[in-house]
């Protein structure tokens, strides 16, 4: 699971690698691409490999963004990290053939590393279902709005109407295929009101989390993507009401004057899953 928040960490900086271990992000995205200068790619690979083998990174998903398949770097990137403790490889400027090629390479290494597609061009937005279906290793997508707007030749605004179509389409596609969708980072570092507004927009469209380039953004992103106490309480009441309704042979029924049917129950189950209570509930049912 990628989780609610994912922090980009430049793999060329020891101080940032050290600090990342202590941040609250659910996932860390160690970057070998844009944040690393061309003549420092070799050093970043060596540094990241040693860091992954020796730093204590507890309770976080470890993702590595490799260089694009149009470069000479990506195979060396994968070779550097394939035998470390990473969970997922993030593929920039992803196209369906890129996913297939990397999936084949990982098959030859006999590893269970997952893939995540970074969608940052007009063509990738249109190919999203082919990208997701290209390999069973694909567990999530990340929307990259900076490169996407650059590809379209338009300016990116803080209000974000120019990315609405792509943003909504990607969230919908991810849900259609049951994978996670991470929203694009908010790039204005000290504007926390703007971050809140932008994060809520993504959540309303169906994103399951948000990426960030600033560790100070992570707590607010986590807070917004964590279901509220009220939401959890209601979800638990819905789940508990299902069994009672089933005993009475009812497919649809009312709770607090509102109709409860399959979509409402599915939403309640997602809330329970997101706060990590699913296993607890399953255990309780087993014990009854």
């Amino acid at each position: 699971m990628i989780g609610k928040s994912a922090l980009f960490v430049p793999s060329s900086s020891p101080s940032m690698l050290n600090a990342a271990c202590a941040c609250n992000a659910d996932s860390l995205i160690f970057d070998l691409e844009d944040s690393v200068a061309a003549d420092e790619k070799d050093a970043a690979r060596d540094l990241l490999k040693e860091a992954l083998n020796h730093l204590y990174i507890i309770g976080k998903n470890i993702i590595v963004r490799i260089n694009a398949l149009s470069t000479d770097y990506w195979k060396k990137d994968i070779e550097a990290v394939v035998d470390t403790k990473i969970n997922t490889i993030l593929i920039p400027k992803a196209r369906p053939d890129d996913i297939k090629n990397i999936s084949d390479l990982l098959n030859s290494h006999n590893t269970n590393i997952n893939l995540m597609a970074l969608i940052e061009s007009a063509v990738s937005v249109e190919e999203i279902t082919d990208i997701i279906k290209a390999s069973k290793r694909v567990i999530g997508i990340l929307f990259g709005a900076e490169d996407y707007t650059s590809d379209l030749g338009i300016e990116r605004s803080q209000e974000g109407s120019e990315i609405f179509y792509a943003r909504a389409r990607l969230a919908n596609a991810a849900h259609a295929y049951g994978i996670e969708a991470l929203d694009t980072p908010f790039t204005i570092l000290d504007d926390f009101e703007g971050l809140k507004e932008d994060t809520l927009k993504g959540k309303k469209l169906g994103y399951t989390g948000k990426a960030s380039i600033n560790p100070r953004h992570i707590d607010l992103i986590n807070k917004i993507y964590t279901p509220s106490e009220k939401e959890v309480e209601y979800a638990l009441r819905v789940i508990n009401s299902v069994e009672r309704a089933q005993k009475k042979g009812k497919g649809a029924y009312t709770l607090d004057g509102k109709m409860i049917d399959a979509p409402i129950i599915a939403r309640a189950e997602k809330v329970i899953e997101r706060v990590g209570l699913k296993g607890v509930l399953d255990d309780e049912k087993c014990c009854k």
């Binding site: 020891p14 050290n18 050093a43 060596d46 540094l47 490999k49 040693e50 860091a51 083998n53 020796h54 730093l55």
Partner: peptide
């Protein structure tokens, strides 16, 4: 840290 010394 040690990992950084080794990598460099």
């Amino acid at each position: 840290l040690d990992y950084c010394l080794r990598a460099r």
